[in-house]
């Protein structure tokens, strides 16, 4: 009997995860008493010195801590001790807002660039120069002009997610098949109606691909941005826990950043599938 490919892949995935967790567990567990020392001194030194236990937490430590976090995701004990749910909500909120502004700017502008060769050529040098700038390089300028760290972070998200959407929209719009445009022309369809009934659906898969790339970049950048601006968010949480030397929390944060990133990507992938048409 042969199992489905999906099922076999799942088995292999689980096996790999098991191997990884096993190696991690073995590499970080204590190796028994290492030296004779007085109990008082041993208590002072902790398990790292007495049992040879690694400073790196094992999977069981991380699991236990994660369970603790999951039980209370939204607690708020002051500026430096908030639940992971709250921190993630801040980050997702910033990404959402910056991304939304980027969509509002990039899609109409991309439409103009795609439809007008003049605008395309005129804006090209600016886009070429602005696009490769690391979004974090804008941070000091944003902080200086906006004078608000939270809004500056949103601005950085905006500036990093605007480019892929802009370029993909322009590319998608410029690449709409001539014959579809001609259909609209022979039917005397006006410019606005043509934009919504022919160009938008034809370019939608390309636009959505750009939006999917953008959400990925925005989620990458928010962690770094929040490390800089501080206060709230999952990026700040990582940095704060590093300062607390809580490697367990850092690992948990890394895991959650990955999961949320995957989730955002999946949402956009679903939207992309919805607008994709078979030919």
């Amino acid at each position: 009997m042969t199992l489905s490919l999906r099922f076999r892949a799942a088995i292999v995935s689980l096996a790999l995860l098991g191997v990884f967790l096993g190696i991690w567990h073995l590499a970080t567990r204590g190796g028994g008493a290492t030296a004779n020392m007085s109990p008082e001194y041993a208590r002072l030194m902790g398990l790292t010195a007495t049992q040879g236990k690694s400073a790196m937490p094992g999977p069981l430590d991380v699991g236990a801590k994660l369970w603790e976090h999951l039980k209370r995701p939204f607690y708020d004990n002051g500026p430096n001790d908030k639940g992971l749910g709250i921190q993630l909500a801040y980050s997702i909120g910033r990404v959402g807002l910056g991304y939304l502004i980027a969509v509002i700017v990039a899609i109409p502008l991309g439409f103009m660039i795609g439809m007008s060769p003049l605008i395309s050529k005129a804006l090209d040098p600016f886009i070429q120069v602005l696009k490769p700038i690391s979004p974090l390089a804008w941070m000091p300028l944003a902080l200086y002009t906006i004078k608000d760290s939270s809004i500056s972070a949103i601005f950085v998200i905006f500036i990093c997610s605007v480019w892929p959407m802009l370029l993909n929209t322009a590319f998608g719009v410029a690449g709409v098949r001539k014959e579809w445009i001609n259909v609209a022309r022979t039917l005397e369809v006006g410019t606005v109606r043509r934009a919504f009934t022919v160009i938008l659906p034809a370019a939608a898969p390309t636009i959505l691909t750009g939006m999917r790339i953008s959400i990925g970049i925005a989620w990458l950048v928010i962690v770094a941005a929040e490390m800089l601006v501080g206060g709230t968010g999952i990026g700040y949480f990582v940095w704060n826990e590093w300062n607390n030397l809580s490697i367990t929390n850092v690992i948990i944060a890394i895991l959650l950043i990955g999961l949320v990133g995957m989730l955002l990507d999946q949402v956009l992938a679903r939207f992309t599938r919805m607008v994709t048409f078979p030919e």
């Binding site: 098949r177 014959e179 579809w180 001609n182 259909v183 022309r185 022979t186 039917l187 005397e188 022919v198 659906p201 034809a202 048409f277 078979p278 030919e279």
Partner: peptide, 16 residues
């Protein structure tokens, strides 16, 4: 172009 003159395209040009 005009709605008085309909075109049937070689590549059918349907909106997919």
């Amino acid at each position: 172009t005009s709605l008085d003159r309909a075109v049937i395209f070689q590549s059918h040009a349907l909106l997919p």
